[in-house]
Design a protein around this nucleic acid. Structure first.
Lengths: 147, 147
DNA sequence: CTCGGTGCAAATGCTTTGCAATGTC
DNA sequence: GACATTGCAAAGCATTTGCACCGAG
């Protein structure tokens, strides 16, 4: 992905907020996020950072993920478990998830029609959408065959 | 609501599982759930039970809510916060939520079209739906007017 | 030089667990 | 009686917080 563009987004966001500072930790975490594939939790991201020799604390990872979320570079999800999961949102279309309750697999999908209907529903209630999440829980095709 | 019908569902579910027992605590918790309006968390439900003179432990509340979820009498949600929220699912149509990030208000809505498209999406992936959740985060009409 | 950010470790708060006592089947 | 369930308190975890130190602006 375009690392530079992502850095710029973060830089701009930090400046626009007036008092937020551009620290090396924040960019290091952003880089790690950009390199990630699929969903990850704080633990995994933290571990990857440490493994790569980046010296950060978990508190900073939490803090930074929140900042990255604010500027739309990462999305935060909460599936069935008690852990928050994240994924990079840069350069990716808005999508949703089918979560297999048997094997834990997550299948992503997009649907313009779903987006459109959601907008209609929101408009009809005078609600202004900031983000939407659709989660379909069930059994994936692989697991269905096994039974 | 039809308390008796709900009791029957629970009874049947417990029996069908072979080893689960029908304890007074479980029915007391079910009753408290049936009396609830809207969403609640474990804390609130527990407090209400205690206030009503029902002697249960929080552990049992957690346990029972899981059982009730299994037999479709309650739904569990996870919105933005770190607390699980529940609501009774008995005698209610399947619906979704718009969550106001400003005032925390939750607006419920239903949409046959959304349900249908979700089914189509799942079918096309060979995915078997067990439950679905749609959450629209944003700003409600009341809060929009205030700004 | 200021004040926001970081690291660490302790604290918090929801949820789960271990185990003896209880009561359903 | 056997054993699932309960209550209690302790343990687990993910996440947050307090505070001294550091370093971006």
């Amino acid at each position: 992905m375009d690392t530079q563009a992502a850095h710029e987004i973060l830089t701009k966001h930090l400046k626009s907020n007036g008092k937020q500072r551009a620290t090396p930790e924040r960019f290091a975490i952003l880089d790690a996020v950009l390199q990630s594939q699929g969903h990850f939790d704080v633990e995994a991201l933290y571990y990857r950072l440490i493994s790569n020799g980046v010296k950060v604390s978990k508190a900073t990872v939490y803090n930074t993920l929140e900042v990255l979320q604010e500027c739309g570079l990462v999305s935060k999800y909460r599936f069935a478990e008690n852990t928050s999961r994240y994924e990079k949102a840069f350069g990716r279309p808005h999508h949703h998830h089918m979560i297999c309750l048997n094997c834990g697999d997550i299948i992503e999908f997009t649907s313009d029609r779903l987006e459109r209907i959601q907008e209609e529903m929101a408009n009809s209630k005078g609600f202004e959408i900031q983000s939407t999440t659709i989660q379909i829980f069930g059994t994936c095709s692989k697991c269905r065959k096994k039974v």
